[in-house]
Amino acid sequence: MADPRKPRPAFAPWDRREIPGLFDVDESARRVGIYKWIEMRLFETLGGWVATVPELDVKLVLGRHCYHHAWHAELWDKRLPELREMNTTRLTVPANDAMNEFMESIREPEAPELTIEKLVGVYRVLIPRKIAAYTYHLNATSRITDAPTQRSLGFILQDEHDDWTEGEMLLQSLIETEDEVDRASRRQVALEKIVLRAGGITGPGTLGDAPDSSGAQVEGATV
């Protein structure tokens, strides 16, 4: 048996985590507050829609997904005080006015014949955008200092991928005519234009800054 008193390194040879990350505490908190706001608006919307969709399978999926996003909001609500934000409502805000307009547009359809429009907004525009923003955060933040955020992101991304798949499959089964393809496309284009104006779901820099024309990479909000 190995000598239990023999000094060992704090990091095993296969543990390649490093300290540097692109976000400081304030930037991580700002993003987490925005995530919480989005998850809240989303679970409320899905909950509200349950009574307005006649398709029984869609109704049940919306009820299940409603809870998924509520749980995400709860995780972000618990993370905020750990990021020095004791007043958790202060940062629970949209990134900007365009993002507020985007979420208002997402939740706008109400009539029972608008299930395609409802699902396109959530499963073809918002959730893909969330997956992109969450994945960027997961890859960009410090794997050591911001590990609690990363752990939540891992659980949440699993849900988002599963829900995205389920929502897309529902949509494909609902879209039966060329006219319905057009409806879905029009809805997606209209919403994409608003979120483009917002600069992404956490505002400009949602996925970091784009490479400049000189080819030099300018990354993240804070180093």
């Binding site: 809240m40 679970f43 409320e44 919307t45 899905l46 909950g47 509200g48 829609w49 349950v50 009574a51 919306l62 009820g63 409603c66 809870y67 996003h69 509520a70 749980w71 909001a73 709860e74 609500d77 409502t89």
Partner: peptide, 23 residues
């Protein structure tokens, strides 16, 4: 339960109540 998550603003129904309704 779904409508209760949606019908009330944040100042009318506490966040934790809405989480319970989502559950």
């Amino acid at each position: 339960a779904g409508r209760t998550t949606f019908d009330f603003d944040d100042d009318e129904a506490p966040f934790a109540l809405k989480l319970d309704m989502a559950r």
